[in-house]
Each structure stands twice: as structure tokens, then as C-alpha cells.
Design a protein around this nucleic acid. Structure first.
Lengths: 143, 143
DNA sequence: TTGACAAATGCAAGTAATCCGCATATACTA
DNA sequence: TAGTATATGCGGATTACTTGCATTTGTCAA
């Protein structure tokens, strides 16, 4: 059943958005489904290599751009000078970033929607997305 | 009096944080004081050149890093793959970024503080800062 | 099953943002 | 005004990311 779960085959998600199910894409979808924080490209490359899938950075960048364009993933920037990616389906949350150890936790229940509506009304600005991240020191780094 | 205002001399701010008042630093402080949206390094370089102040990118990066370290400025990232900087004294607001024309507007009155307190209580995470940005289409780009 | 073709990939080269070391220049201070 | 710590300029390096092109590979129809 674990197998069944993993093998539920990310191919379906890929086919749904008209993307061919190549080994690298399937593996990356699976990585994203089994990771609880946004993943950077370096980590993706290492994951692929560890799983015997030959690749190079250009391809991985193309893949995540394509995923994001097709709405499978969401690009997240946490002031690191690089991007991370998470499944769009799981993206209804925000992040707590520990500036000491780099750990990333999710938080939900932010009530930003009200603020968005306000903005639309007051500024005539059509909000399509927002980013909200908190930076600080996590529990364990506080000793 | 305009002169007086501009010449109120950013040197004071610089001296207060133990930074020497070099031409580039003074000019950049003045740029930041007279710009209503966060400024990127490219713009700073062009500004300095336009004002006859010879410089190079490494120096400007060093200056903004120093400014930020000393608390004069705040670094802002708007998903552009580069940083912008604004005066820390004016930083009690967030941004509306138009993904069509690139225009940036400020918004204030966000009430995030309550959420921050929640996080500290629930997660034991000591929040030191947060970033909140909205992306969408501005009034004029909507036609 | 297979063959054709569009779609992906690998590689090499290129760009943009940012940083670092070191020698020189310069703002402040006595 | 000289002395010194601090800034700067320059060259080179790094990292994230992109692009062009030739080759490979999913997919789908026969």
C-alpha cells in the first residue's frame, strides 16, 4: 500500500496538464509530494542523481518552470537568493523561516483574504496572489 | 528651501550609525529619501552616474549591505530575482506589485501583528520580521 | 508492435546579481 | 595637516538561471 501510494503515479497529474511523463518529471512530482517544505533546485538535482536519473540543471529549471506554468507547483522565495517550489495543491499556507538553522515550517489559518478584498476595493488593484513569510528564530534554536 | 530639505544632509544619518559620509553614500541616502518605492541596485548605479559620482557595482552592493546591517535600510524582495532597498524608517508598510507593468505601490494598515503573536505562542517561534506582498494587476493595466 | 513526430533533454555557452581580495584612495580626527 | 582606519575600484569568482541547438525519447496512430 505504501507502494500503491507512491506509485499512484504522478503520471496522471502530468498527463492532465499535457506534459509527458519523463523519468525526471515523475521523480520530481514524487519528491514534491513527499516533502513537507518547498524544495530548491539543488535538492532536486541531488535527489535525481541519488535515484539514478541522469539530468542537468538546465533541465530541472525547465521542469519547474513548466510545472509552475501549468499550475502544478508554486514558486516560493524565502529571501535566500534562489527559488523553491511546492505543490500548488498544498500551497494554501505560509512559511516560518528560521534565520539561524534555515528550517522552514508551514503555517495556515492566516486570514489575508479580508485584506485582499480591501485592497481590491480601495486601490482597484486585482490581486492574483500574495506572499507572506515570517522570519525569526525557531524553538530549538532558542535553546 | 528645497535645497535646505535635500541638503538637510544625509551625513547626519550616516554619522549616527558610524558610517563615513562618502559621496556615494550621501547620494544614495538622498535617492532613497526621495523615492517612493524600493530601489534596486541597477537604478542606484544609474543615479550615481547621472550625478557624476563614479562607482562600480561591488561598491553599491557593499553600501546597501552596510546600510541594511546598520538598520538604515530594509531589503525587499519582490520575486524579481533581485533585491530592492527602502529606508527602514519608511518600511512600516507592504507592497502591491503589478505583474504587468511592474509598478509598485505601498499599502499600510495591514494587521499582521496579531498573527505574529499567535505564532510566537503556538509555535514557540520568535518572529523578527515578516514580508507580505501582493501581486496582481494594477488599476491602469486593467484598462 | 512499431514508426513518426512533437516534445524533452543534454550540453555548452551566456547573462545577471552578488560577493571577495587586495591595492589604492579618502573621510575623519587629533 | 598628517595619520589611520575605513571605503572604494578593479578584477575575478560564484551562483542562480536561461537559451540555442543537436540528439533522444514519450506518445499515439496505424
Amino acid at each position: 500500500m505504501v507502494i500503491a501510494k507512491v506509485k499512484h503515479d504522478c503520471k496522471d497529474e502530468l498527463n492532465e496538464v499535457d506534459l509527458r511523463a519523463t523519468p525526471a518529471r515523475v521523480a520530481l512530482m514524487s519528491l514534491l509530494e513527499n516533502t513537507d517544505k518547498p524544495v530548491d533546485v539543488q535538492t532536486m538535482i541531488e535527489y535525481l542523481e541519488k535515484n539514478g536519473i541522469k539530468t542537468d540543471p538546465a533541465t530541472v529549471f525547465r521542469i519547474v518552470n513548466m510545472f509552475t506554468e501549468k499550475g502544478l507547483t508554486k514558486q516560493v522565495q524565502l529571501q535566500e537568493g534562489k527559488s523553491r517550489y511546492e505543490l500548488a495543491a498544498n500551497a494554501d499556507h505560509h512559511h516560518l523561516v528560521c534565520t539561524k538553522c534555515g528550517d522552514i515550517q508551514d503555517i495556515s489559518d492566516c486570514n489575508i483574504d479580508g485584506l485582499e478584498k480591501d485592497i481590491e476595493k480601495k486601490k482597484g488593484f486585482a490581486v492574483t496572489s500574495h506572499s507572506l513569510e515570517f522570519f525569526g528564530i525557531c524553538k530549538s534554536c532558542q535553546r
